[in-house]
Design a protein around this nucleic acid. Structure first.
Lengths: 253, 253
DNA sequence: CCATCTTTGTGCACGCGTTCACAAAGACAT
DNA sequence: ATGTCTTTGTGAACGCGTGCACAAAGATGG
């Protein structure tokens, strides 16, 4: 996974643990694959293997949704697909806007995994006037000026931010003011949002840094124990933090 | 966040909790921003606010690294930047290969956040012969046939998979066989890897599904309680699982 | 040198999530 | 109808992560 939730106060919604919710899409994917193969039923053991989780965990997860299995047999694939889809809210259509149509934003617009799960890209928005009208993934890019109108006209409640870090908070504020209550943030910034607004963050460089940590540990300990700690004045030289700024990540204090 | 770790057995490396490791890049980013502003010291309260976490949590996190603060004053920014960078392994250069240069792969290749953190894109690899030699982000794409040689020649230990789901496991196997021990997976598939190999998964559609769940709950309960549960034969119609297949996500059982 | 004030570092308790292990439930054969 | 066999659903124990609250440590001023 990437970097997970942002300060959700563990608000176990209707008794379904957050950790369980995060796994439901995983189960759904495995079940969908089974459905395509016309597999009628599946045991918790098999499904758990396909989803890469413990079978006891899977059974407990499902128990939060209800008793949908049959002892001695397993789970009805089609039925479970429906139940999980409904629980996740995928039986309805979710219009989504993507703000910031750079490399990443364009890739997201082209990403098939959205539309296939009931998420409809209602609009692409960018601050660059030169982009306006230019079609990306078959959808014409609109200018940031019209953001509020776009949100309102399309009844958008989910926004995706793929802008540079410097613009993210401002875009976020406008999205929230216009009525968006769920945000998927790809910009490397901590977003401040009012209560009632959900933010999930995907940070590519953070994922790599976590991998690097474990990688170092695996490679580790034999070469260079790096004994003498440098003084406070010593600056590391390898990690020159380049452009691509997270400049506005810190408040003026 | 995206979808986090995959089946790491909570192997608290050298006493540093996994949850703490996941936050270190966050602190590092906030600290780097402070460093650029030439702020000399910062209190746990200020830094916690900038990173969007609890100050007690931040102090406990830092306590795992050592006693780097000064009571009554706070933390030396430069010193802390160095210590965290070293702990994360960012003081060394990490050559990375990206496999699968489609929309997403190309966006990743162009992403500035990698190079700025000590991650160097050593090679771009794609299975399409038509892509071979074509430069993306200034780097010529190479064919999958040369994957093993590329890994070996460049001493790559971190691989990024941005292929379609159907190709992911196969690419993963080849990467691992060639010596890669850390994988960042963007393909919507559960990857099977031998012990000792770390996999982190970033799944865009899963993030949206989690948001949709909470969104449904927020919008919730007033409209359509949807009482009568459909029979097992009833198939939901809205979420027609389209193309963009996660076909090979499930084993033949 | 002493008092005061700020801020760290951490002991402790609590809650969530995971896992084990097993009883209950149903299918299926006889 | 009864017994056997498979698999679910869950009670209970455990471990990790979080947050409170405070004592220890050092800076700073008199």
């Amino acid at each position: 996974m990437a970097t997970g939730r942002t300060h959700r106060p563990a608000t176990r919604s209707r008794g379904i643990p957050e950790a369980t919710v995060a796994r439901l899409p995983l189960y759904l994917r495995a079940l969908t694959a089974l459905s395509e193969r016309s597999v009628p039923t599946v045991s918790s053991e098999e499904l758990a293997a396909a989803a890469g989780v413990n079978s006891a965990k899977l059974r407990k997860d499902f128990s939060y949704l209800g008793s949908y299995g049959t002892r001695g047999v397993g789970y009805d694939v089609e039925y479970l697909v429906y139940q999980i889809s409904r629980e996740l809210g995928l039986t309805q259509d979710w219009p989504v806007v993507i703000v910031g149509i750079g490399n990443l934003g364009a890739a997201l617009a082209n990403y098939g995994g959205f539309a296939s799960r009931g998420f409809r890209v209602a609009a692409l928005i960018d601050a660059d006037p030169a982009m306006a009208g230019k079609p990306v993934a078959g959808i014409p890019v609109q200018h940031t000026d019209d953001l509020e109108k776009i949100i309102e006209d399309n009844g958008v409640s989910i926004g995706v931010i793929a802008t540079p870090a410097g613009a993210a908070q401002q875009v976020c504020d406008r999205l929230v003011a216009a009525g968006v209550t769920s945000i998927l943030n790809f910009a490397p910034t901590v977003l401040a949002v009012p209560d009632g607004v959900d933010v999930r963050k995907v940070d590519l460089s953070i994922e790599l840094q976590i991998l690097a940590f474990h990688e170092q540990r695996k490679a580790g300990e034999e070469a260079g124990p790096d004994g003498a700690a440098p003084t406070a004045a010593t600056r590391k030289e390898s990690t020159d933090q380049g452009p691509e700024g997270d400049v506005p990540a810190v408040m003026p204090a």
